[in-house]
């Protein structure tokens, strides 16, 4: 059980690294939204899943409750993160940020 939890946490951390790299390196705001919208959601889901599993390992009923709360955070992030992404990218489109394309660079 502990090994599984550790694997999930490390996997989520790898996705967070990918998110951060994408956020720093991508050329324009729309591409950065790709990194933030997807990598962040899946990274948080994996890490919280691993933490919830770790929390179960000496079994107790209060531990089950805390794990359920962690899963509640997970579900909330799963619903809220795409919504926030959409709100930001819609605001950017509305303010008229031009998307970067390959032809812009010589």
């Amino acid at each position: 059980m502990n090994a599984l939890a550790g694997t999930f946490v490390v996997l989520g951390f790898l996705f967070f690294i990918g998110t951060t790299l994408g956020l720093l390196r991508f050329p324009d705001f729309y591409s950065r939204m790709h990194a933030s919208g997807k990598g962040d959601t899946i990274g948080a889901i994996f890490m919280l899943l691993g933490l919830a599993l770790h929390n179960l390992s000496p079994f107790s009923w209060s531990g089950v409750f805390v794990s359920l709360k962690i899963v509640l955070i997970l579900i909330f992030l799963f619903l809220a993160n795409p919504t926030a992404t959409h709100a930001i990218i819609d605001a950017g489109y509305e303010t008229g940020v031009k998307p970067w394309t390959r032809e812009d660079t010589p």
Binding site: F16, S36, G43, L77, A84, A91
Partner: peptide, 26 residues
């Protein structure tokens, strides 16, 4: 460079903080 980029950065930091708080608790 734009204000929207700053909002993205703050949002991503917030998601990481959510996870970090649970880790601190453990």
């Amino acid at each position: 460079p734009t204000a929207i980029d700053r909002i993205i950065g703050v949002n991503v930091i917030g998601t990481k903080t959510t996870v970090l708080l649970v880790i601190i608790g453990i």
